[in-house]
Computed example of a mutant assay.
Amino acid sequence: MNAVPENQPGYATEFADDYDRWFAKPGITGATVASLAALAGRGPVLELGIGTGRIALPLRERGIEVHGVDGSAAMIRRLRAKPGGAGIPVVIGDFAEVPVTMSFSLVYLAGGTFAELPDQAAQTRCFANSAARLTAGGLFVLDAHVPEALAAVTGPETVSEGDDHLVLCYRRLDPSAQRYRSHYVIHEHGRTRHLRVEFRCATPAELDLMASRAGLRLKERWGSWTGDPFTRDSGYHVSVYERR
């Protein structure tokens, strides 16, 4: 999860200050940055749901020109407070609409951000509007859970744990609506909070169909950001689409 549209009240505001501490896993972040840098070409690149800059800032440090779109002013304030964060152009708005005018060699979403779009219509618009912003041969990249794998998970997941805090996540899936809800229980400083975030999941086949209708075709699909093969046992995928 990299950023959240403001139609999910409380999430972006509540998590903005602690997002990096809880969710920025160094190994995953490093692999994500390395893969995107290899795909970026000459740039510039656009991150949809840029959030606190977890991915964008390391890419910029590699000399890649990065732009962003995000729905959360709170997340962008955190980005701006970091070294180099003020130098990344960001539009605050609905990333399904991709409200920018430039063209990019790479448009990407990371950390499951694509699933935060509320319905198929919004996800389809994101594909189409991203494709319209790509240069010839440009790439559109997203990562996502495989819905069947989500259904197989039982019990809570420990998101972050320390001497002073504990963050647990429990996902509740509704296959009939292709939706799941993540419940976050945060205990810190003697206080317990509960936040809910809604997601809309899509199978890889449905994503491929959205891509095709947007004029994109699947170029590669991995089982992780490290480039592991995507197999029938994969619970997660990184899909790389190419503009035809």
Score class of each variant (00 low, 15 high):
Pro26Gln: 13
His145Ser: 11
Ile92Gly: 01
Pro9Met: 08
Arg77Asn: 11
Lys82Thr: 11
Ala152Val: 10
Trp22Ala: 15
Ala128Ser: 07
Ile64Leu: 12
Ala24Arg: 06
Ala3Met: 05
Pro5Asp: 14
Leu39His: 04
Gly87His: 00
Ser234Glu: 02
Trp225Leu: 11
Thr32Gly: 01
Thr135Lys: 13
Leu117Glu: 04
Ala128Thr: 06
Gly30Ile: 09
Ala40Arg: 06
Val4Gly: 06
Tyr241Trp: 06
Ala115Ile: 09
Cys201Met: 06
Arg78Tyr: 00
Ser160Arg: 08
Pro118Glu: 05
Asp163Lys: 10
Pro5Asn: 13
Gly190Trp: 14
His183Asn: 11
Ala205Leu: 08
Asp70Met: 00
Tyr19Ile: 06
Gly85Asp: 01
Val90Asn: 02
Ser105Met: 06
Arg244Asn: 08
Thr154Phe: 13
Leu48Trp: 01
Gly51Arg: 03
Gly10Cys: 08
Tyr11Phe: 14
Ala31Ile: 07
Ala12Pro: 06
Ala31Cys: 07
Met1Ile: 12
Val141Phe: 07
Leu36Ser: 02
Ser182Phe: 02
Leu216Ala: 00
Glu65Ile: 04
Leu134Val: 12
Ser160Asn: 04
Leu166Gly: 06
Ala121Trp: 01
Tyr19Pro: 05
Cys126Ile: 00
Glu220Val: 03
His237Tyr: 15
Gly93Asn: 07
Glu157Trp: 07
Leu218Cys: 12
Glu65Leu: 09
Asp17Glu: 15
Gly43Leu: 05
Ala38Gln: 09
Leu106Val: 10
Tyr170Thr: 14
Thr124Ile: 01
His145Gln: 10
Ile55Asp: 05
Pro44Gln: 12
Phe199Tyr: 13
Asp208Gln: 02
Thr113Val: 05
Ser224Glu: 15
Val100Leu: 06
Ser103Gly: 10
Glu14Gly: 02
Gly30Cys: 03
His165Tyr: 15
Val146Asn: 07
Arg179Pro: 00
Arg78Pro: 00
Glu242Pro: 04
Leu46Phe: 11
Leu207Asn: 01
Pro156Arg: 08
Cys126Gly: 00
Ala131Thr: 01
Val45Trp: 09
Tyr180Cys: 07
Ala3Asn: 14
Pro9Glu: 08
Ala16His: 00
Ala151Lys: 12
Gly215His: 06
Glu220Trp: 04
Gln8His: 13
Pro204Glu: 00
Leu134Cys: 13
His165Asp: 05
Gly85Lys: 03
Ser72Ala: 12
Glu14Arg: 08
Arg60Pro: 02
Val33Leu: 07
Pro89Tyr: 07
